[in-house]
Structures are given as structure tokens and as C-alpha cells.
């Protein structure tokens, strides 16, 4: 899997888009250009680190509308907005919707690169969080139903004896299941197991919200 960053540039102005692509290329970024929101949505996107450089004013759906659509689809690319004329209402909307930055054209190189770096850092963080969650879920998913029952009770703070009683199994079996859980989830102690359970709960809560 290619892990170098890919920057998506969406601007209907050919000249500006080409100039941006040229600049990014010269600075060593890998970048792709799209003339409209639809163009971008229709293109297959490889799962690579990156960000979106988005003109706020586009023919058809605007930059803000594209941002909203991507969020709906769960595409977590950080967005940097570019605008020819920054009116207050659209900049507020953009930032509220989680844009990394809102840049006015013509944009200075350093400003643009700063914003890109921040966006890529955000992306990296998001990706790391996403990987961790995925790992957690994968580990969690690998538990047998019995292991999960034991896990739930450990996380809830029950003692082995209590768990054995509740599940009507032997205490020894509980211990064996518990060791299995910790091995599958790659933790060393019950406390760690508790934190992991908390994190899982957090992730599933986020998902419910999103």
C-alpha cells in the first residue's frame, strides 16, 4: 500500500488548478486535479494519506456541499478551502464543518504549504486513530462468544468467582478464557483491558453520532 500523501485539488479554473498542481509537484507533493465536485466524486480514490484543496465556488455543487457530502460518506479527508473572495458566512460554515483552513486567493506558498502540512498531520492522526480502532475491533471480533461474555464481565469489574458462578462454569475455565482474551487483544492486565473496553465504547459512540 502506497503511503505517500496524495493531494486532491478541486478548482474549476483550469489555469489556477494547473498552477497549483505545478507548484505542488515542484514542492514534491503528489497531487491530482478535478474541475468540479462531481469529477472528484466520480474518480476512484485510493486509500492513501492526503487532503483536499477545495475551491469554495464551483459550478454545480459548491465546495461546501462537497465537504458535506464527503462527511456523509465517511470520507475523512481533511479539507483546505480556497476562495477568491472570502465572505464571512461561508468561511464560518466551512470552519464549523471541520475545514483545516480557509485560504484566500492568491495564496502565498508558505501559507499554502503550512496548511497542507497541518492537513496531512490531521490526516495522519485520523488515520492512526482509525487503524487503532480497526485493530481493536478486529481483536474484539476474534473473541469467541464465551470469551466475549467473560470479557464483558471482567470489564464490568466482576471477580473470577462471580463470573464462574454467573456463567455456571468453573473458575479455572474463567481464568483460561481471560488469558485467551488478553492474548487476543494484546493486553497484559485487567486494567489495560478496562481502558481498551472504554476506548471501544468511545469508538462505537462516535460511530453512532456520525
Amino acid at each position: 500500500m502506497n503511503m505517500t500523501a496524495l493531494i486532491h485539488v478541486v478548482d474549476d479554473d483550469d489555469s489556477l488548478r494547473n498552477a497549483l498542481l505545478r507548484l505542488l509537484a515542484a514542492a514534491g507533493f503528489e497531487a491530482r486535479g478535478y474541475a468540479s465536485a462531481g469529477d472528484f466524486l466520480l474518480q476512484p480514490r485510493p486509500d492513501r494519506p492526503g487532503c483536499l484543496l477545495l475551491d469554495i465556488r464551483l459550478p454545480g455543487p459548491s465546495g461546501l456541499e462537497l465537504q458535506a457530502a464527503l462527511q456523509e460518506q465517511g470520507v475523512a479527508l481533511p479539507v483546505i478551502f480556497l476562495t477568491g473572495y472570502a465572505d464571512v458566512s461561508s468561511s464560518v460554515r466551512a470552519m464549523k464543518a471541520g475545514a483545516v483552513d480557509f485560504l484566500a486567493k492568491p495564496v502565498a506558498r508558505d501559507t499554502l504549504f503550512d496548511a497542507l502540512r497541518r492537513a496531512l498531520a490531521v490526516d495522519a492522526l485520523q488515520r492512526a486513530a482509525r487503524d487503532e480502532a480497526r485493530q481493536l475491533r478486529a481483536g474484539f471480533a476474534s473473541l469467541t462468544p464465551r470469551e466475549r461474555e467473560v470479557f464483558d464481565r471482567i470489564v464490568a469489574g466482576r471477580l473470577n468467582k462471580q463470573i464462574a458462578y454467573e456463567l455456571a462454569i468453573s473458575e479455572r475455565t474463567v481464568k483460561a478464557e481471560r488469558a485467551q482474551c488478553m492474548a487476543k487483544l494484546q493486553v497484559n492486565s485487567a486494567a489495560e483491558l478496562g481502558r481498551l473496553a472504554e476506548r471501544l465504547q468511545q469508538l462505537s459512540g462516535d460511530q453512532a453520532e456520525g
Partner: peptide
């Protein structure tokens, strides 16, 4: 402003790109 800033933005980015090159 948009119409003027489009070409200005392109010019600036092109100039920056040229410098890097």
C-alpha cells in the same frame, strides 16, 4: 473579486512553482 483573484492566484502559484523548479 473572485474573477480577479483567480488569475492572480494562478500567477502567484506559477511563480512559486517556477522558483522551486
Amino acid at each position: 473579486a473572485h474573477e480577479i483573484n483567480q488569475p492572480l492566484g494562478a500567477i502567484l502559484s506559477n511563480a512559486d512553482a517556477a522558483e522551486l523548479m
